[in-house]
């Protein structure tokens, strides 16, 4: 699991965001599209229980940071630079789509 601590501040050390998302989404064994995944801090916290996760974000630097922080144990996540208005994905593919502070 990646560290939630950056240089000087703590964001959600209680992991309330991931905990509440997992309760609401019931990720177990399903295919997830995350829109606005950013540097994937939240993605890495739930990806282990999903079948497959596809994360998109318009920011290339954020996606690069996401890839560099990917835990070795998480192998079911794909990341791509894209926007929600033009998803480079086929129809009828995902069980859940998550807007993580991105709507």
């Amino acid at each position: 699991m990646m560290s939630l601590i950056n240089k000087y501040y703590l964001r959600d050390p209680e992991r309330a965001e991931a905990r509440n998302l997992i309760i609401a989404a019931q990720f177990t064994g399903i295919d997830v599209l995350e829109i606005g995944c950013g540097s994937a801090g939240l993605t890495w916290q739930y990806a282990g229980i999903a079948q497959r996760v596809f994360g998109i974000d318009p920011s290339f630097p954020d996606l690069r940071e996401a890839k560099s922080s990917q835990p070795a144990s998480i192998t079911n996540v794909s990341l791509a630079q894209a926007i929600g208005e033009a998803l480079p994905l086929p129809s009828n593919t995902f069980d859940i789509s998550v807007f993580s502070s991105s709507l």
Partner: peptide
Amino acid sequence: MVHALHEVWRVLKPGGIVIDLRPI
């Protein structure tokens, strides 16, 4: 935003779920 939601509708399976997570 509405366009993005219609795109999400397209890629979701029938009965699929959208989670809207954001600060108030």
